[in-house]
């Protein structure tokens, strides 16, 4: 693709925006090096802090704008956890809120031009998904003991079908972290890459109006995707948590 439109001195590498680069130093990336990924991850933490701590510092009975947003986020996730997991799930609310706030802030910060999006990396989403998967599996066994395996034994199905269903259930259970992580990173990455491709075409005078229109449309879509993917990740976490708390079908 680069070759086809390169006659105007175009250069586009839609994946370059995802490169992890050290900020300062000698270019070596150690595990503790402060990279652009680390910078934007820190920004996400800062936004969470500003929104949920600074925004609510007045503790107003009639909330201002920031406090309203903080309360909306709180109510949104709290209700989600309570609706899906029931009353017993409420004590895991801070963990789920942590996941949601990190993902949603990282996603939206990634929409700033030239920003780095931590959630577009499998190095971020796979640990997140594994954290949920391992946490939920361990919790399931701790809470229910061996009866947690009843999750795979569909007691409402005919007895002859149950072994086959158990196999399918087992496979789908282990596919969970894969789909959980790839869905988030894939959506974010794809949207950002498509915007970059449109941006590359915008340098060509003939197609630039179309390209700029495309960027605008994709950006709007990405705003939606940023929230929806955070929502989907969180709601799936709640569903998995529900399975751990009430494994019977």
């Amino acid at each position: 693709m680069a070759a086809q439109s390169a006659e105007g001195g175009l250069s586009f590498d839609p994946m370059a925006q995802f490169q992890v680069k050290p900020l300062g130093g000698d270019g070596v990336v150690n595990w503790f090096t402060f990279t652009n990924a680390a910078l934007w991850t820190s920004f996400a933490v800062a936004v969470v802090f500003i929104l949920l701590v600074v925004g609510t510092s007045k503790r107003a009975v009639v909330p201002g704008r920031m406090q309203s947003v903080a309360e909306l986020a709180y109510g949104f996730i709290y209700k989600m956890v309570e609706d899906i997991c029931g009353k017993e799930g409420v004590k895991y609310f801070p963990y789920i809120m942590t996941l949601f706030m990190f993902i949603v802030c990282a996603n939206f910060l990634g929409l700033i031009p030239t920003a780095f999006t931590p959630t577009s990396h499998f190095a971020v989403t796979i640990p997140l998904a594994l954290l949920v998967f391992l946490g939920v599996t361990i919790l399931g066994f701790v809470k229910n003991g061996a009866s947690f395996l009843g999750l795979f034994w569909v007691s409402s199905a005919p007895l002859a079908l149950r072994p086959a269903l158990a196999l399918i259930e087992l496979i789908s259970y282990f596919v969970r972290p894969v789909s959980h992580s790839i869905r988030l990173a894939g959506n974010v990455m794809a949207g950002h890459a498509v915007i970059k491709v449109f941006a590359g075409f915008a340098a060509l005078t003939i197609v630039s109006p179309v390209a700029i229109l495309g960027i605008t449309a994709m950006y709007g879509l990405e705003v939606l995707v940023s929230f929806i993917q955070a929502y989907v990740f969180t709601i799936l976490t709640c569903v998995y948590l529900k399975d751990a708390l009430h494994p019977s079908h």
Partner: peptide, 23 residues
């Protein structure tokens, strides 16, 4: 390794902010 390190740091920070103060 680098990304996971900063992710862990961020998650711990957000968890502490949320559970100690914000929530």
């Amino acid at each position: 390794g680098n990304q996971m390190f900063w992710l862990a740091l961020a998650l711990i920070a957000i968890y502490l902010i949320l559970s100690r103060v914000a929530l």
